[in-house]
């Protein structure tokens, strides 16, 4: 896919500060270093989500468990230091993340196969198969910790 670190929807950026593209290896080390991580799982993650569901990390399924914006509001009150997102409507998540980007110290990491500029860290744009492989690798490295 062209433009691995251009926002998947090219107009999704906010001008100055865009997410840093990271590899699965770095994502794993972030989780490893995290004191209190959270994984927010949406409905559109497809097959990739299957590899994360039994991960030993606190998880919230949105919108079933909580509205995404309520989650974000809750994150600003709680002391999560790393919040990961996967499977949420692209433009909706990207826009909602700007609240955490500007008004919170919590680090955000998106695990979708599309580059999401308003997170602090994001996977790059990937083809679907490549993304699933990346998530499998992410899972495997976490298990080997």
């Amino acid at each position: 896919m062209l433009g691995r670190n251009i926002p998947y929807q090219p107009t999704a950026g906010t001008n100055l500060h865009h997410a840093e593209v990271i590899s699965t290896k770095i994502a794993v080390s972030m989780v490893k270093r995290s004191r209190r991580p959270l994984l927010v799982i949406g409905e559109y993650g497809g097959e990739a989500v299957r590899y994360l569901e039994d991960l030993n990390i606190e998880k919230i399924y949105t919108p079933r468990d909580m509205n995404l914006l309520s989650i974000i509001k809750m994150i600003t009150r709680e002391d999560y230091d790393l919040v990961m997102f996967i499977g949420i409507t692209y433009y909706y998540l990207n826009q909602a993340l700007t609240h955490l980007k500007h008004f919170s110290d919590t680090i955000t990491l998106t695990l979708d196969g599309k580059y999401i500029p308003n997170a602090h860290y994001s996977f790059p744009n990937m083809e679907e198969g490549e993304h699933i492989e990346a998530i499998k690798r992410f899972r495997m490295l976490l298990d080997n910790l």
């Binding site: 906010t14 001008n15 100055l16 500060h17 700007t98 500007h102 008004f103």
Partner: peptide
């Protein structure tokens, strides 16, 4: 009010653009 800025800057006057991030 719960804000989600679309842009990091303000560009409404010629003082700017001003970076309002962080």
């Amino acid at each position: 009010p719960f804000y989600m800025p679309i842009c990091d800057m303000c560009c409404l006057c010629t003082f700017g653009k001003c970076d309002l991030s962080k």
